[in-house]
């Protein structure tokens, strides 16, 4: 369970997150929608402790992660899957080594089992047979799917995905959204996804949060949001 309290963050005088309050239940899939540059990525980076807030608290499983040391954070993060907006794959490792990295670090599996798991997950993200390819030789969308594979390979109970579908074609977007949905349902995984992709967000989310100007403007299920009279919400959902 994740609880965000009065979270605020300012970058060189510019307020990016403004007093955010949000509670995410265990096993819930939450999608954060919002325009480009409203601070979705910044919010996710706070949730995993990469950024420290100016003010406010973030509780993950009843532990306030904003006052933990980097060492304690590393331990918590090994139980969280995180997908970067740009993938952030190691470019000195090939695809298989990238995906296997968390397994090597945090499990005792043998090389053979790890290789098997890598093959399986590559099949799941529809990228069979690219184990030996280096990230620089992949397309943006392929890189993103490899990064997603790396984020979910440990079967973590918490998953944060920063725009998993941006840069993908509509069919792949749908498949990847479903993949995240299925994976997180299977493990009863608490999932936070940021996105611009309204259609797929509503397809997979238990709840959608709409951010605007550093604040949460609206939240709820699809039907609740569609009923909203807020001009920004209407405008955003229209397109």
């Amino acid at each position: 369970m994740i609880k965000i309290e009065n979270l605020s963050k300012t970058f060189s005088g510019k307020s990016v997150l403004d007093n955010i309050n949000l509670e995410i239940k265990e096993g819930e899939i939450l999608v954060v929608l919002g325009q480009s540059g409203t601070g979705k990525s910044v919010l996710l980076k706070h949730l995993i402790g990469l950024l420290k807030p100016d003010q406010g608290a973030i509780h993950i499983n009843a532990k306030d992660i904003t006052c933990l040391s980097e060492k304690e954070l590393l331990k918590i993060r090994s139980n969280i899957g995180y997908l970067f907006q740009e993938g952030a794959l190691y470019d000195f490792m090939n695809v298989a080594e990238n995906i296997a990295f968390p397994l090597h670090e945090h499990t005792q599996f043998s090389k053979k089992i790890i290789a098997q798991k890598v093959t399986e997950i590559l099949e799941i993200v529809d990228l069979k047979g690219i184990e030996k390819v280096y990230p620089s030789e992949l397309s943006g969308g392929m890189r993103k799917r490899v990064a997603l594979a790396r984020a979910i390979i440990l079967d973590s109970k918490i998953l944060f995905c920063d725009e998993p579908t941006s840069g993908l074609d509509p069919i792949r977007s749908r498949d990847i959204s479903d993949l995240i949905h299925d994976a997180s349902r299977k493990l009863n995984c608490t999932t936070v996804i940021t996105s611009h992709d309204i259609r797929n967000s509503f397809r997979i989310a238990d709840r959608v949060v709409l951010m605007h100007g550093g604040k949460i403007t609206a939240q709820g299920t699809e039907s609740e949001l569609r009923k909203s009279q807020d001009p920004f919400v209407k405008d955003f959902l229209m397109n």
């Binding site: 969280i80 970067f84 952030a88």
Partner: peptide
């Protein structure tokens, strides 16, 4: 950053 998110220093 990704290294840190994977729990590795």
């Amino acid at each position: 950053l990704a290294t840190r998110t994977m729990g590795v220093d």
